[in-house]
Design a protein around this nucleic acid. Structure first.
Lengths: 333, 333
DNA sequence: CTGTTAGCGCATTCAG
DNA sequence: CTGAATGCGCTAACAG
């Protein structure tokens, strides 16, 4: 293996100068720079990042913790993160928790060992006290999910508002019995969306019926199962608002199996606007989260924190938007 | 920051002993081990991975290079990789090339800098000579895609055979004019699937018609566009075999827009068996690739290479399977 | 602008 | 089983 020493010897300069050529080129005269570069080239020299990491006590690696990388919602966010990370010479270490709280904690511990300079977590299901502690000790940004603690920098949409828009849309179309398939109840964003759903109903003088509220897990199957249950109700709903597009699509499948047509007999609204939402038939009316942008902003925020070395208790709220497609039908239709 | 030195001082042992407690516990007596552990605990000591990495000249990080992490096909493979990696204390560094050859090369260069101990590449579009070179110099496994060079360890299915099965299925259902929407032609697996498609036709005395063969890029939109073209042909096809489920779904959408029904008027076969294939309506007949298993095997193979320090020119072939669902109809229907 | 000096925190010899 | 000594390859102070 060739080291800076070797290059220095060949170029007849000190190894400090070689180091400067690679880490702070402007500090070296053009002439010696060229000599060093040539020597490095001749020896096929490559910088050893390991040594630099130790010396600088940083890795230029960001850990991204998420529940499931094969969920398109999360992977889109990751792409946003990666694009900004790359521009700034950071790399992404993947922490797929498989929805496992133990793993979530374990990944967070990697920070202690200096594996990564910071974390972006797309999940926050471990107790919020622990998250706050970690965010105080290390460089951390929470995205999508968030916790009540004021001190953790967060990038997300307003979930109450998003759910409100979705529900109101169904109300405007004339629906009175509107079901809700929520995400896991221990996740705060599910709680918020439930709030938005309830508020929309209340605001329009529709009584909230607990039977119409089911808890899912964001996946296709859970949408199917929960919708099947809802359809068996004595007073079955005529519309459903699901907390993810995948559950919405699962729900549509259940509705079709039940012999009903979407949107003719039943209206469905999803959440997220993942790619398949526009491809599926009927195409899905859904609350669009700017996934890529969430990733971008989260990484930018983390970079700020990394550079200023001070945590800023920033909460960035991005806009969600109701995208109207075919799964609800249209007024006066 | 607390170091081994601090722990050593508190425990009244040498720092070498502290090191042994964490890297080779059996080499230390139970008694001193306990003393050290207690001291470490008291000081909240955490091993500094950076220093260890430099000393051992390894990172326990594997880089995974792929075209697009938000493509469910790749992200499923990543999950397989990660599960094995984790068991063996390796971490995954993400290298999303965005289908960009320049990035593909750039990521590969990270190996030179010792960012990662090895690579698993799910893409091989840069020239094969370079890939062979890299694989000879470093620890590398190719998965899914592969190149002709005999020397690169590879995990994949038999694409010729998979395509053959798909095409033959359509032939068995009575179709004579069978279109093919292929992946990018510069990718060897596309070439292989084209071979399988052609062979199936030839074996059943159906003339190959170049007009029926279109090149796509694996995405939804490209399936839609290519199918739209095919439907405008004077002698339009009655069935299509697409190189990805996403293109197949795009094709179905085009067929429906054209006023035809799937499977009644038109049969469609996809490739991969991603999750949406079974959810979409009509559910998709497709060639199933064992994505998770590909990831698992690829990581296992890489571990072998890493441990034995010798490249083994292994080609692992996994089974593909035709999954029959609703998008082609059924015989005597 | 460049060289000298001194470690970063750990793992590995080699003695004992 | 344990300690002392050494250096992985690089960067950062400090002089000059």
């Amino acid at each position: 293996m060739t080291t800076m020493k070797d290059v220095a010897k060949l170029a007849k300069v000190s190894d400090a100068t070689v180091s400067r050529v690679f880490s702070d080129p402007d500090a070296v005269s053009d002439k010696t720079k060229q000599i060093v570069l040539d020597a490095a080239d001749e020896l096929n020299y490559e910088l050893n990042v390991l040594a630099r990491n130790l010396r600088k006590m940083k890795t230029e690696i960001i850990m991204v913790i998420l529940p499931d990388i094969s969920n398109p919602f999360f992977s889109k966010i990751v792409r946003g993160i990666e694009s900004v990370a790359m521009e700034n010479n950071y790399k992404i270490l993947l922490g797929d928790t498989k929805n496992d709280l133990v793993l979530e904690k374990e990944y967070l511990k990697n920070l202690d060992q200096k594996y990564a300079d910071g974390v972006i977590s797309l999940t926050a299901r471990i107790d919020s006290k622990l998250i706050r502690e970690i965010s105080e000790k290390y460089n951390m940004v929470l995205a999508c999910e968030y916790i009540d603690e004021a001190s953790v920098p967060t990038v997300s949409i307003d979930n109450v508002e998003g759910a409100y828009k979705a529900t109101k849309h169904l109300i405007n179309l004339g629906h009175k019995r509107i079901a809700h398939i929520s995400g896991p109840k221990n996740v705060i964003l599910s709680q918020d969306r439930l709030k938005g759903y309830k508020k929309a109903l209340s605001d329009h003088n529709i009584k909230i019926d607990g039977d119409l509220i089911n808890e899912g897990d964001f996946g296709y199957k859970s949408g199917y199962k929960n919708m099947s249950k809802l359809l068996k109700l004595d007073k079955a709903p005529t519309a459903v608002f699901a907390d993810s597009d995948q559950m919405a699509i699962g729900a549509i499948k259940a509705i079709k199996s039940h012999g009903l047509k979407v949107p003719d007999d039943f209206a469905v609204v999803g959440f997220d606007n993942i790619e398949i939402a526009s491809i599926y038939e009927p195409s899905l009316t859904t609350v669009c989260q700017p996934m890529y942008e969430i990733g971008v902003k989260a990484m930018q925020l983390l970079l700020d924190i990394l550079e200023k070395k001070e945590r800023e208790n920033i909460k960035i709220k991005l806009e969600s938007k109701l995208i109207i497609r075919d799964s609800c039908g249209y007024k006066n239709n």
